[in-house]
């Protein structure tokens, strides 16, 4: 009984190492809690984490496979749609959930160790891990069934990480905005739905005429989808992307997002 009553460590220390250690500890605890509250301990439990995106991706892939839409470049339509849909699911999932990120976890902010950023990082990390898990399941499946293994799995992994970071940066801005107005909450689904054809998930840059390619390459997610396809299909099709451009977007959205979150925290009424 007295063992638990050790003096409480001061809030985040002032040394950068202490701050990081505390942040990692908190994020770890938040991920575990999020797992518990989202999936519970019943039936499939944590397995839903991977099964949910996998089912959606699989259904979409099967649909296009059965309808037998051919994909330019002679790619396997099932693979094309799954490889497109899974990173898209990550982007859309993180952004659609962003307006509720703070609201759903307000009670955590009673603990001064827990920052808004910790909460949002934990949520998005979990989402990223789930979708990555689903992607790996499919890649193994493709390897076994179609005999096609990714040409460069590290490019695909890198692409998924970039997608998560970009989505995270945008989600920070949306979460911060949602503190001030309901508008984000109301419009986010509409906007992600309408922007679906623009994001580059379901077409490739080389399908487009030259002028359209130049416009398309302004959109950062287009580059990421191309990178992931390069990792999967390799030289089977031409891909176009600029990682520096994507990193600039990631840096921009994340820095602005963190500044916005910091501001919003001050105005938050719990």
């Amino acid at each position: 009984m007295t063992d638990a009553a050790l003096p409480a460590p001061a809030r985040r220390g002032t040394r950068i190492g202490d701050v990081l250690a505390c942040q990692l500890r908190v994020i770890g605890a938040l991920v575990l809690r999020e797992l518990g509250t989202r999936f519970g301990r019943d039936n499939l439990g944590y397995l839903w984490l991977f099964v949910e995106p996998a089912l959606l991706g699989g259904a979409l892939g099967t649909l296009h496979y059965v309808v037998a839409h051919s994909v330019p470049g002679g790619l396997n339509p099932f693979e094309f749609w799954v490889i497109a849909y899974i990173p898209f699911y990550l982007l859309r999932g993180v952004i659609n959930r962003a307006p509720f990120g703070i609201q759903a976890n307000q009670s955590l902010l009673y603990h001064r160790n827990v920052t808004v950023l910790d909460i949002l990082v934990a949520r998005n990390l979990l989402e990223g891990a789930a979708v990555l898990g689903a992607l790996i399941i499919f890649l193994v499946f493709f390897g076994i069934i179609f005999g096609h293994w990714p040409s460069d799995p590290f490019k695909m992994l890198f692409g998924m990480v970039l997608m998560l970071l970009l989505a995270h940066g945008v989600s920070l801005l949306i979460s911060a905005g949602a503190v001030y107005t309901e508008l984000f909450e109301r419009l986010v689904h509409l906007v992600t739905y309408l922007s679906m054809p623009l994001l580059g998930a379901f077409w490739m840059v080389f399908w487009l005429p030259y002028e359209a390619q130049r416009l398309a390459l302004w959109i950062p997610s287009v580059h990421i989808f191309e990178l992931i396809r390069d990792g999967h299909f390799g030289n089977l099709v031409p891909t176009t992307y600029d990682i520096g451009y994507v990193l600039a977007w990631i840096a921009g959205t994340n820095l602005l997002g963190m500044a916005a979150i910091r501001r919003a925290r001050r105005d938050l009424v719990l």
């Binding site: 063992d3 638990a4 050790l6 409480a8 460590p9 505390c22 500890r25 908190v26 770890g28 605890a29 575990l32 809690r33 603990h111 160790n113 827990v114």
Partner: peptide
């Protein structure tokens, strides 16, 4: 458990 984790207690 959650409180123990975030405050670094056993």
């Amino acid at each position: 458990r959650f409180i123990a984790r975030i405050y670094g207690k056993p």
